[in-house]
Simulated assay, not measured.
Amino acid sequence: GNDGGGSIRIPAAVCGLVGLKSTRGRLVTQEAAKALPVNIISDGVLTRSVRDTANFFAEAEKYYRNRKLPAVGHVTGPGKQRRRIGLMVDSIAGDPTCPQPRAAVEATAKQLSDLGHHVEMARIDLPQRFVDDFLLYWAMLAFFVSKFGRALFPQGFDGQQLDPLSQGLARYYRQRFLKTPGMLRQLRQSQARYAEVFNQYDVVLTP
């Protein structure tokens, strides 16, 4: 699968699978993602176990290795290094997480801390308009698929078969497309803010 806004993590969370979104650029970037004005996509896998995910990353690294990132290697068990873990319990947009997933994340953070890792609350300061910008970007992608789907997917693409969410997002973008330049500028700035925070941690733990 690939993950831009949760497409690996969310299905895994509701289906009893393991879903890990890796750092962008760690794995081979598909051509479609390279063409995006703001690349939000990481390719990866949904697996039945952490062991399977670890094996996938080890094998993928043999095929392609991004020299700007530390190697993952073949993880077969607990490591000796203690990690810096950034904890984000609530949405970066300010929406609180409901009690059950909150308890699960906090319990995981405590377990990691008990194992000797450094866990601290992490925060990304984003402008209030971030959610609206991200929604417009998502809508833009849906619009491109609806408009140019035959070129992207030449084998039998039928725009009438798009799900209602994608059709609604495409309509949303058509009504607001004049905001595109400002939206892209803001998202690129937000991406830089993300990078500043993520560079402080080895892992970011969220619901």
Score class of each variant (00 low, 15 high):
Q111M: 11
A122T: 08
Q128M: 10
L126Y: 03
P101V: 04
Y137F: 08
F144W: 03
A93T: 15
L126T: 10
P101E: 05
A103C: 04
G149T: 03
A93V: 14
Y137W: 08
A142R: 09
A151D: 13
K147R: 12
K147L: 08
H118L: 04
G116P: 13
D133S: 13
G94V: 07
I85L: 01
P78D: 09
A104T: 11
Q128E: 15
A109P: 06
V119G: 08
V89M: 10
P96S: 01
P99G: 02
F134L: 13
W138D: 05
A109V: 09
T108K: 03
F143Q: 06
L136F: 01
K147P: 01
V89F: 11
L135M: 05
E106Y: 05
I92D: 10
G94A: 07
L152W: 10
M121L: 12
A139F: 09
P101M: 05
H117W: 03
Q111P: 03
K80Y: 02
I124E: 09
R123C: 06
A93L: 10
K147A: 07
D90A: 07
A122Y: 08
R84L: 01
V105Q: 11
R102C: 00
A103L: 12
G149Q: 04
K80C: 08
W138G: 00
C98H: 12
P101L: 05
T108F: 00
A151C: 02
D125A: 12
A104V: 12
D125G: 08
R102H: 06
H118M: 06
R123N: 03
S91M: 10
D95I: 13
S146K: 00
R83H: 13
Q128D: 15
V105S: 04
D114L: 05
V105W: 08
R123T: 07
A109L: 12
I124Y: 08
F143W: 15
M121P: 13
G79P: 04
